[in-house]
Amino acid sequence: MSLGRYVLTRLLVAVPVLLGVTVLTFSFLHALPGDPVDAIIGYQSVSPETEASIRAEYHLDRPVWEQYLLWLRDALTLEFGRSPVTGRSVAATIGRRLPATLALGGAAWLLALAIGIPAGIVAAVKRGEPADELSRVAALAGIATPNFWLGLVLLLVFSVRLGWFRVIPPDAPLASLAMAKFMLLPTVTLGTASAALVTRLLRSSMLRELEAGYVRTARAKGLRERTVILKHVLRNSLLPVVTVAGLQLAFLVDGAVVVEQIFSWPGMGRLMVQSILQRNYPVIQAAVLVIGVSIVLVNLLVDIVYAVLDPRIRY
């Protein structure tokens, strides 16, 4: 089976998963006790006319399956309606918030790989030596440190005490130098635990691969040790890391909720916290859907990367 067909198969398999995500997201409004209209408007008393118009706007006057289909149609066209709190378009709000979270999550993810991969390689190759011990202690500390604590300490030391960074984001476009500088602390906060995890995972995976017969073959060919490690051992060792790196995305979204709150970062995490506190259900619904779909898509990407790295996977 060719890579192209493999990708196509994975895409087709992703469709029912995505539909499942939409069903769950849609159901959650109906799973709440009471009338969905109450959930949307909160506990304010409104006139019967307003209530009727809300029912019509969210198609609540139709049978449930029809409501789902209509909602799905709207979701496919990114039409999530207006926020009952601000009156602004939900799609526009998410369109503004999503890039901020993608930027932060992506930066944290890259940081995790940029630290975790070299550290994992060094720890495995220098097994039992001081470099390995150091990486072990650092990784344990990284995993054991809660990100909310790390975020607060970094903010307190580098922003409040030393004044090297702003406490709240600058009023600048996302792709600007000022913003990039501000992003440093939240990125470190969010990426530390992942970096530690990647280090540990790659180290153990490499130690296993270093025992493999092909490593001896590679050495017997007369390859440089550097080539043996970076070309032969690393590619095999990365397979479990790729799997976890994909799952880490869900973890980073989790983390983003807390970290965005600490650093006042205008992303999806902060939007969700605000919306939950305001019981702003249409926004929560749309945000959850967007996050769910992104995670499905990233896992699809992971499957494809996996297949590119490991030719055996297509069978």
Binding site: A212, G213, Y214, R216, T217, A218, A220, K221, G222, H232, R235, N236, L309, D310, P311, R312
Partner: peptide
């Protein structure tokens, strides 16, 4: 590999799968 080369037992393990 140039002057002395080796053929290992268990060729499946001796070849890099990727």
């Amino acid at each position: 590999g140039d002057e002395i080369a080796m053929v290992f037992q268990d060729a499946d393990a001796a070849l890099n799968p990727v």
